[in-house]
């Protein structure tokens, strides 16, 4: 029974992470609903396990981005001050928030993600350089090699303060719900900092490891991470993420987007029902 459950966790995480990776999402947003709704795992245990898988995916995915010079490591460490502080605040809050509220919050984030999935995300228009005093001082502006154009494309980092504020929120949500909180990072990266999509994906993937480590570290020391659950989930997520990144190009994106928006909305509805104490789906265990 236990062995089968571990294999089920492993296989589910491979699929969740591969599918998430195809759309550039972290698997956390699927892992927590799957563990709680189908695996009947407590939501706090699910969140702790999901955090480990978020970190694992970040570390596993970072190497090609770093080698391809897409990650802005200087910008990442500056933004990490905000995400890690947000995560620390989240850790302090987690004991206070009732499980029912966690389900509600998670449903809200799922709905936001579904909506974001349907919205078209384009490269933000680069604006004329405003007085870039601090950015220049910190040397955050950089360039990245664009394979299609065959040359280095320079970019400037805009509105750093707004970016830092949104990142604090992303760190907080990440710690409380055990997700990568791409849903908050996308607006931070696109709307506030106005980074090219390739740079923002690579940089936020790089950052989420540290953000997750703040809260996962606290959970680990406190003994909230159940190895029997977190182990198969983390390993499955790493394998799924590596596989998902390779299938990225071959599928028609628009159809998958719509399908995913539906899946996310369904999970949101189920999490809302769970929060109100109603259970429709019964998983095998």
């Amino acid at each position: 029974m236990d062995g089968w459950f571990a294999l089920w966790l492993f296989a589910t995480s491979v699929v969740a992470s591969a599918v998430g990776g195809m759309l550039g999402m972290a698997s956390g947003i699927f892992i927590v609903p799957i563990l709680t709704l189908f695996g009947h795992v407590g939501i706090r245990t699910a969140i702790a396990a999901s955090l480990v898988s978020v970190i694992a995916c970040s570390c596993a995915g970072a190497t090609p981005f770093l080698r391809g010079r897409l990650t802005n490591v200087r910008l990442a460490i500056v933004l990490e001050t905000a995400t890690s502080l947000g995560a620390l605040s989240g850790v302090l809050l987690i004991g206070i928030i009732p499980a029912r509220v966690l389900f509600f919050l998670f449903a809200a984030i799922l709905l936001l993600s579904a909506w974001q999935m349907l919205a078209n995300r384009g490269d933000p228009l680069s604006h004329k350089a405003e007085g870039s005093d601090r950015r220049r001082m910190l040397r955050l502006n950089s360039s990245y090699p664009d394979a299609e154009l065959g040359r280095d494309v320079p970019y400037r980092v805009q509105r750093l303060q707004l970016g830092l504020m949104l990142m604090y929120g992303a760190g907080l949500v990440s710690a409380i719900l055990g997700i990568g909180s791409g849903v908050l990072k996308v607006p931070a990266m696109d709307t506030a900092l106005r980074l090219p999509i390739k740079v923002s994906s690579a940089t936020s993937n790089f950052m989420i490891g540290v953000t997750g480590a703040v809260s996962a570290g606290a959970y680990l020391i406190h003994g909230d991470i159940v190895s029997e659950i977190a182990g198969p989930v983390a390993l499955g997520s790493v394998i799924g993420a590596v596989a998902g990144a390779r299938i990225l190009i071959r599928i028609p994106k628009d159809k998958v987007r719509v399908l995913f928006a539906i899946v996310l909305a369904t999970l949101a509805a189920e999490m809302l029902l769970q929060a109100s104490g109603i259970r429709l789906l019964e998983g095998a265990r």
């Binding site: 480990v52 490891g209 190895s227």
Partner: peptide
């Protein structure tokens, strides 16, 4: 016995900290 798994999980959590 899940001690080896736990060590692996701890490594994952420590890895970003080592990176910083």
């Amino acid at each position: 016995d899940t001690r080896i798994t736990t060590v692996g999980i701890a490594m994952f959590v420590l890895l970003p900290i080592v990176r910083v």
